[in-house]
Design a protein around this nucleic acid. Structure first.
Length: 378
RNA sequence: GGUCCGUUCGUCUAGGGGUUAGGACUCAUGGUUUUCAUCCAUGCAACAGGGGUUCGAAUCCCCUACGGACUACCA
């Protein structure tokens, strides 16, 4: 298993334009894949149709393209493990949820949204800060663990709405070795019975993600730190499905933080401080609101990549200017830091300046001509 | 609140028992350039705090503080 052919994936959900953090995740995945002679896949995780945004998928493909991050397999690239869009894979997920139910590792739940909030309210007033559907509360809910078998069958036959939840073990330590953070251990008593399969017939992220990574032969999951808390659930899913032998290695990347203060970098920070947070221009199809991107602001993709690569990674030498080729040969997950990195727009401008200065006069002239024409200066 | 993760100049970071704690960005100063998103030089500036372990800790351990992520039939 150590010597499996490296396959990694970038799996965004098409809910809007890809921001800097997402591009960096894609970049690191790409660099890692190429460094090890492996494959870089692009998978669209659109299991929530209510959050679908028109044009987002094209935006992602176009942005990656501009950056020079080449997709080996996936949406827009094809491949033998497709389709690469989860909404087109809906037929394959249910059987894995069923498998989990058969092995008693998951169960049906019929609770209505109203009943769920009622339970949460009740728990809150009893002093529980964040109520969960878990070992202690599931006994009082409407599910196949509490309902008589016939009623469960009846409800199922009748076509009642139901979800499938994982049956979190009572008291089990789940450990895994994160490539960047080392051993991480969480006890299942702190985890809840997450919904695996939704009442609309689609899996949730957790199930779809694990099933697809398995089916697509993913060897390393390189993603943002915001996924660290759910990694134990994913590990448990691999074990429950009998796939522990081919479980990918996990690497949770530090977040990109806002330049001032703390917290994740967001679109609002860019607007507020006057710099783009997106690789290319984006127009919100619903509001018509426009957001500027680095491409249209005159940044070279090489500079953009170079800057992104250094936000959380460094080669351990004093070299700062790297071509994509050099990035590939130097990149290593070992040299990715653990702490979040504040975005530095000044440094970004500096990177671009370096690339600008290295252009020949001829190239520069060629690149500038369209602008001169536009201004009627030629 | 709970769980998990984190903490070296203002920022990105190197350094993993003995260093004048190094580099880059920003900033300041001087110089070069009668143009420039110049260039060169110099300078300012950091190990969160407290306990250990050790002859010796920025480096190892513990605690505290602070910060972040997560806590949906969202990803």
């Amino acid at each position: 298993m150590e010597n499996r052919h490296v396959r990694v994936r970038f799996a965004p959900s098409p809910t809007g334009p890809l921001h800097i953090g997402g591009v960096r995740t894609a970049l690191y995945n790409y660099l890692f894949a190429k460094k090890h002679g492996g494959d870089f896949l692009l998978r669209i995780e659109d299991t929530d149709q209510s959050r679908f945004v028109a044009g987002a998928e094209d935006y992602i493909v176009d942005a990656l393209n501009w950056c020079g991050i080449q997709v080996d397999e996936g949406v827009s690239a094809g491949g033998s493990k497709g389709p690469y869009k989860q909404s087109e894979r809906r037929a394959i997920y249910h059987k894995y949820a069923d498998q989990l139910i058969e092995s008693k590792l998951a169960y049906y739940a019929f609770d209505t949204p109203g009943e769920l909030t009622e339970m949460r309210e009740r728990m809150k007033s009893a002093g529980v800060a964040s109520p969960q559907y878990n070992v202690v509360t599931r006994g009082g809910m409407k599910n196949s663990l509490t309902l008589p078998a016939e009623e469960v069958r009846e409800r199922l036959d009748r076509g009642d709405n139901y979800v499938i939840r994982i049956k979190m073990p009572r008291n089990k330590d789940i450990k895994f070795e994160d490539v960047i953070r080392g051993w991480v251990s969480v006890n299942t008593k702190n985890l809840d019975d997450k919904v695996l399969f939704k009442s609309d017939g689609m899996p949730t992220y957790h199930l779809a993600n694990v099933v697809d990574d398995y089916l697509m032969g993913i060897t390393h999951v390189i993603r943002g730190e915001e996924w660290l808390p759910s990694a134990p659930l994913h590990v448990l899913l691999y074990e429950s499905l009998g796939w522990q032998g081919v479980m990918p290695k996990f690497a949770h990347l530090p977040l990109i933080l806002k330049p001032d203060g703390n917290g994740k970098l967001s679109k609002r920070d860019g607007d507020r401080l006057g710099f783009p947070v997106f690789p290319t221009n984006w127009t919100n199809p619903e509001t018509g609101e426009e957001s500027s991107g680095y491409r249209e602001r005159g940044y070279y993709p090489e500079a953009f990549n170079n800057m992104l690569a250094f936000l959380g990674w460094n080669p351990g030498t004093t070299q700062e200017l790297f071509t994509m080729k050099e990035l590939i040969s130097s990149f290593s997950l070992d040299r990715v830091g653990k702490a979040g990195a504040k975005f530095d727009f000044d440094k970004t401008k500096w990177f671009n300046q370096q690339y600008l200065r290295s252009r020949s006069g001829d190239d520069l002239a060629k690149e500038l001509t369209p602008y001169l024409k536009e201004e009627g200066l030629t």
